[in-house]
């Protein structure tokens, strides 16, 4: 009987340890689209072979452009040297526009995307994840854009490559 009491106490102890858990949300809940800046250089003129090279931009500022055409007050980036930026897509619209200002030249990129609810847990709730359909751009300084990863979730991945002239 004494032995049984010890076994019971050990079991309660194990149960107590296994029941302690944090109720804070520790997961990242913001899905941002990763953008990298690149340049293309013609390395073989005969065979028209281009090599892609990541570049650091001298000066860049980024702001969102609302659906009614007004610039959003808050500046997302204002940096002297930058290679990658992470942009928040609009969670309740299927298009997000950004104005990129390179020194004095401006370009606008428009991302067409779908938004899906993604449940994390009771502690963290729900977040929105996106799937990029199309990326449109003006071509003042930007040469072209390429989607390399359509799924935008909470990981810091690169989704779009912007090629600069």
């Amino acid at each position: 009987m004494k032995q049984n009491t010890y076994l019971l106490l050990i079991a309660i102890l194990i149960l107590g340890i296994s029941c302690t858990s944090s109720e804070d949300c520790t997961e990242d809940r913001i899905a941002k689209m990763g953008v990298g800046f690149y340049t293309r250089a013609l390395t073989d003129t005969l065979r028209k072979v281009y090599t892609t090279k990541a570049i650091n931009l001298d000066t860049l500022s980024v702001r969102g452009l609302a659906a009614n055409g007004t610039l959003i007050d808050s500046i997302l980036y204002k940096s002297k040297t930058i290679q990658n930026i992470y942009l928040p897509l609009n969670k309740f619209e299927t298009g997000s526009k950004f104005v990129l200002t390179f020194k004095t030249t401006k370009d606008t990129i428009e991302i067409l995307h779908t938004n899906t609810d993604y449940y994390l847990s009771l502690e963290c709730g729900c977040m929105k994840v996106h799937s990029i359909d199309t990326v449109l751009t003006t071509t003042n300084l930007i040469d072209s854009v390429k989607i390399i990863n359509h799924k935008v979730n909470a990981t810091n991945a690169e989704h779009v490559q912007i090629f600069i002239n």
Partner: peptide, 18 residues
């Protein structure tokens, strides 16, 4: 049932409660 799950849209404005 799960109620009152808020999704904020900090940069673009507005939000939603699921």
């Amino acid at each position: 049932t799960i109620n009152n799950m808020a999704i904020t849209n900090d940069y673009w404005g507005a939000g939603q409660v699921l």
